[in-house]
Nucleic acid binder design. Structure first.
Length: 395
DNA sequence: CACCCGTGGAG
DNA sequence: TCTCCAAGGGT
C-alpha cells in the first residue's frame, strides 16, 4: 500500500464532485458515513477523555457521559468571547460576565453601557453589541431559551457558521460540523491539503462533516480544538504526542508546519490621529464622549478625537481640538489594528467649566467602568502621566 | 468574495 | 522589534 492516510480512503473512493486541485484532496461526500472518520474520532475522543482542558464553560468528558450538559448560556457566551480571541484573554471576562449576569435574561436586562464597559479591552466590539442584541432576542422571543438546532441558532445576531455549529454540538448534541481555525489547521494537515485558505474551506468542511460522530459530537469538536491548541500548533507541532499522527499525511511527509497554506496578506497602511484629554481641575475627571455605534470601536467611549481616515503629514496639532483650551502635547500612542497601524497624538489641558460639546465627566474612580477601548485607555494614561497638577491637587 | 473589525501573547 | 495569529461574523 502506498503512503496513504487511513483517513483518506473514503476520499479516494468518493466520486469527487467537489474535485478541484489534487485528486487526493477530494473530500468524502457529506452525509456519507466514513469508516476512516470513525477511526479518527474514536482515537481523538479517547485522547480527549484523558487530556481535555479544564475550562470554566466546559463540562468534563466524565460528567458529560453521566448526562450532564453544559449551560447553553455559558456555552454561547464563551463561544462569542472566544471568536478570534485566546482562551487566556477570555477567562477573566467570562468570570466577570457570568457572575454579574448569571442568565441570559439578566444580560438582556442590562444597560448597553454596562455591557460595553464590561467588554472593554476584549476587542471586536461588534461582538458585544451583537451579544446584547442576541440576549434580548432569546429572552423576549424565545422565552429565555436558546434554540437547540444549528439552523435556528445561525439566525441570531453574532452567531455565524462556526458558533451555531459549536453551540448545537456542545450544548445540544447535534452532530454539526464545527470548523474553526484550529480544526482548519488539523484537517489541512491530516489530508495535506495544498489549496490555500480561504479557498480550501469547502473541502475542509466536507472532511469535518464526514469525521463528526453522531455520538459525542460536542466532545469531538472540543477535542479537535484542544488538539489544535495544544498539540497540532501552528509552529513546531508536537506530532510525537498526537493521538492521530498515524493517519496524518502532513506528518508522514515530514512537513506538518506547511499547512494550512495561506494567501499572502496585504501590508497594513499607517494612519495618524489625535485625542484630546481634557481634565477637570477640581477633581481630575476626564471628559468623554460616545463613539458612533457603527464602525471601528463602535459604541465605545473616548476622549474627543479626530478621525484617522488618512495620514496627515506632520501630525494633526492642536488646531484639531474640539474646543478651545490650553492644549499641550502629552505624548503619543502607537496601536496596531487589524488592517492599519495608528499613531495617536495625545493632547491634554486642564479646564474648569464644562466644554460646550456632547459628553460627560468620568471621575478617576469611575474610569475603570467606562467603555474605554484599550487604545483610549492608553491615551488617557499618557495624559495622566504628564499632568503635574494631579499630584499637587491630591495632597 | 473582499474587506472591515481589537487585542495581547508567543516566538 | 516584529510578525503572526486566536474557538469569526457582518456586510
Amino acid at each position: 500500500m502506498t503512503k496513504k492516510s487511513i483517513f483518506t480512503r473514503q476520499a479516494q473512493a468518493a466520486d469527487g464532485t467537489l474535485a478541484r486541485g489534487a485528486p487526493d484532496e477530494r473530500p468524502p461526500r457529506p452525509s456519507q458515513a466514513s469508516p476512516a472518520g470513525a477511526a479518527l474520532s474514536t482515537a481523538l475522543l479517547d485522547w480527549y477523555d484523558r487530556h481535555a482542558r479544564d475550562l470554566p464553560w466546559r463540562t468534563s468528558p466524565a460528567d458529560r457521559k453521566r448526562g450532564i450538559r453544559p449551560d447553553p448560556y455559558r456555552v454561547w457566551l464563551s463561544e462569542v468571547m472566544l471568536q478570534q480571541t485566546t482562551v487566556a484573554a477570555v477567562k477573566s471576562y467570562f468570570q466577570t460576565f457570568t457572575k454579574r449576569w448569571p442568565t441570559v435574561a439578566d444580560l438582556a436586562g442590562a444597560p448597553d453601557e454596562a455591557v460595553m464597559g464590561a467588554w472593554a479591552g476584549l476587542g471586536y466590539y461588534a461582538r458585544a453589541r451583537n451579544l446584547l442584541a442576541c440576549a434580548r432576542v432569546v429572552t423576549l422571543q424565545h422565552n429565555g431559551r436558546f434554540p437547540e438546532t444549528a439552523e435556528e441558532l445561525r439566525a441570531l445576531p453574532g452567531i455565524g457558521d462556526y458558533t451555531s455549529a459549536a453551540i448545537a454540538a456542545i450544548a445540544f448534541d447535534e452532530p454539526a460540523a464545527v470548523v474553526d481555525g484550529n480544526i482548519e489547521r488539523v484537517t489541512t494537515r491530516l489530508h495535506a491539503i495544498e489549496t490555500p485558505l480561504p479557498a480550501a474551506r469547502k473541502a475542509i468542511r466536507a472532511f469535518v462533516d464526514a469525521m463528526t460522530p453522531s455520538l459525542r459530537p460536542g466532545d469531538f469538536a472540543q477535542a479537535m480544538m484542544d488538539l489544535g491548541a495544544t498539540i497540532c500548533t501552528p509552529r513546531r507541532p508536537a506530532c510525537v504526542l498526537c493521538p492521530v499522527s498515524a493517519g496524518c499525511r502532513a506528518r508522514m511527509e515530514g512537513r506538518p508546519e506547511e499547512f494550512p497554506r495561506k494567501l499572502a496578506k496585504k501590508a497594513k497602511p499607517a494612519r495618524i490621529g489625535a485625542a484630546f484629554v481634557a481634565r477637570r481641575a477640581s477633581d481630575g475627571a476626564v471628559w468623554l464622549r460616545r463613539r458612533p455605534s457603527t464602525g471601528i470601536l463602535g459604541g465605545m467611549s473616548e476622549p474627543p478625537s479626530t478621525d484617522w481616515s488618512s495620514r496627515m503629514d506632520g501630525g494633526t496639532g492642536r488646531d484639531a481640538a474640539p474646543f478651545a483650551a490650553g492644549w499641550r502635547l502629552a505624548g503619543s500612542v502607537a496601536h496596531g489594528f487589524t488592517h492599519f497601524d495608528l499613531v495617536l497624538e495625545v493632547w491634554t489641558a486642564e479646564i474648569d467649566a464644562d466644554p460646550a460639546t456632547e459628553g460627560w465627566w468620568a471621575t478617576p474612580a469611575s474610569l475603570v467602568d467606562e467603555a474605554l477601548p484599550t487604545l483610549m485607555r492608553k491615551a488617557v494614561a499618557v495624559a495622566e502621566s504628564t499632568a503635574p497638577a494631579t499630584k499637587e491637587r491630591s495632597r
